[in-house]
């Protein structure tokens, strides 16, 4: 594709996106009224916006969002580090793989969010159980992607390095590690969105902070607009986390052909 035609595709795509957004917002604002859907089922846009302002002043929306964002960040970073570390370890050591794989498989099958009540029993209504659920849920996609990447490195590449008398450490740092980065980032992208899920479930289950708490509080008050605001803020937090991963990815994987990388 030429640069010019690529540019025009980008322009048309962006224009269509913006148009869709406008239509969606308009439908949200006036659709419920026209279809006679009561505001406690779907509050129109303006009502949600008003609620957001109210919550900002009265319900410490910013603080709750900040707490959730911090938990997401902590859970995501720790879960990714742990997932990557175990992925590399198992990828490089068949013994570790044999020893650990049944447990990892069992843990992978177990629904991670079901651990939330348990963690709260252990750690109380603090931020820690939420971070822990996030760690657990982020761990798997990152670990699996790293492991698959290490396993699928072209053996001829390893042989090439071996023929130059590379040490095991050189093979790792010069071949396996860089080769694992694209799948690692694919895992991080998934992990960044899952971290939000983990944290929200933790907050829903117990405690009085974070957007998950506002979610259940709003539900208890039958305040649909409040629930909508919490959902929007959660999406925002997840979106920012995802965007951060993509920004780092574009710096690290700058050598990949441009069109191989996109926002998704």
């Amino acid at each position: 594709m030429s640069d010019a035609s690529h540019a025009s595709v980008v322009w048309r795509g962006t224009a269509a996106s913006v148009a869709l957004l406008v239509i969606f917002l308009a439908a949200w604002q006036w659709g419920p009224g026209l279809l006679r859907i009561p505001p406690f089922i779907i509050p129109p846009l303006s009502m949600v916006a008003e609620e957001a302002v109210r919550m900002w002043h009265v319900s410490a929306l910013a603080t709750h969002t900040g707490i959730t964002a911090a938990e997401v960040l902590a859970g995501f970073i720790l879960g990714s580090l742990l997932g990557a570390f175990i992925g590399y370890l198992i990828g490089m050591s068949p013994t570790a793989e044999l020893a650990l794989s049944p447990y990892i498989l069992a843990l992978q099958i177990a629904p991670k969010v079901a651990f939330a009540p348990l963690f709260i029993l252990w750690m109380g209504f603090t931020v820690y159980p939420k971070i822990l659920v996030a760690i657990l849920i982020v761990f798997f996609p990152v670990m699996v992607n790293v492991l698959t990447a290490i396993r699928t490195v072209d053996p001829d590449l390893i042989n090439l390095a071996r023929a130059f008398k590379a040490t095991r450490a050189q093979i790792f740092w010069k071949i396996e590690f860089p080769a694992s980065l694209p799948p690692l980032f694919a895992g991080l992208r998934i992990g960044s969105t899952l971290a939000v899920v983990g944290v929200v479930v933790g907050e829903l289950v117990g405690g009085n902070m974070g957007l998950g708490y506002l979610l259940s509080f709003g539900e208890g008050q039958a305040n649909t607009a409040m629930v909508f605001v919490a959902i929007l803020m959660l999406t925002l937090v997840g979106g920012i986390a995802y965007l951060l991963v993509i920004l780092i990815e574009q710096r690290v994987l700058h050598y990949l052909p441009k069109r191989a990388m996109s926002g998704f």
Binding site: A161, P178, L253
Partner: peptide, 21 residues
């Protein structure tokens, strides 16, 4: 197969063996 490392530039690929050595 050329076995070039996609994250290395041409000259860095050429230097791969001597670098290891």
């Amino acid at each position: 197969k050329d076995l070039l490392l996609p994250w290395r530039t041409v000259i860095e690929n050429v230097m791969f063996g001597v670098e290891i050595q």
